[in-house]
Simulated assay, not measured.
Amino acid sequence: MESYSSFSDHELAGLLKSGNEAVFAEIYNRYKGVLYLHAYRMIQNKEDARDVVQELFAAIWISRENLVIKTTLSAYLYGATRNRILDVIAHHKVVSRYTDSLQDFIDSGESVTDNQIREKELKTIIETEISLMPPKMREVFELSRQQDLSHKQIAIQLKISDKTVKKQVGKAIKILRLKINILFTFF
């Protein structure tokens, strides 16, 4: 097996196109360390730096027959490494933005959904408790709260006194407040 350690980068680049594995191994061994250090300095992550170098050499081997190196081999390898580093950095930014937006959605979405569910449950409880009120009290309360009529208007409509309307609304609110307090005590 021929040793290519004495060959120049230009000679190795020319021989690489033929698919000679020993030539590829020489290029790999010659540059893997410095390219790894370069990548690590830029992205500060050992695994990502190692991946950048491995993927670069894998891509070179796969496209070796069509590889066009217009500069020196070292300049080509550094440039290709830089481009892959920039891809990694861009990918990390995209992932970071995505996880941030996902976390924002989870933070706000959970509370919105939780509040909507609680609001719906509370509304159901209130409606149930109103339906359980004595008929006259329920009628007075619904006219007061749902139709937004004044005590005087309700008294005229139902032909009862203002004081009776005021008492019925007060009792209805007391009943609802008591039931809601009991429920929130248990939950």
Rank of each mutant, 00 (worst) to 15 (best):
R82C: 04
R97S: 10
G109T: 06
I60E: 02
L56T: 03
L77W: 01
D104M: 03
D107K: 10
G79Q: 05
G79V: 06
L86W: 09
L35K: 01
N45S: 10
A25H: 00
Y40R: 02
T71D: 13
T128M: 13
L56M: 08
F105T: 10
S96Q: 12
E121W: 06
G109V: 03
N29H: 08
A59F: 14
A58S: 14
Q54P: 04
E55F: 10
R64N: 06
R41C: 07
D87G: 11
D48H: 13
Y28M: 01
D100F: 11
E55G: 04
E55C: 03
S108A: 13
S63N: 14
E47A: 04
E121I: 03
K70T: 15
V95L: 03
E119C: 10
Q103P: 00
I85L: 06
D107R: 12
Y31I: 05
V94P: 14
R82M: 08
F105R: 12
S111H: 11
I126A: 04
T99V: 12
F105L: 14
L73G: 00
N66D: 15
I27Q: 02
N66P: 07
D51N: 04
D87W: 04
A90I: 01
E127G: 01
Y98C: 05
T124E: 15
A59I: 06
E65H: 10
Y76E: 08
E110I: 13
I106L: 12
R41Q: 09
I60Q: 01
H91G: 03
T99E: 14
S108T: 14
R84F: 01
A75T: 14
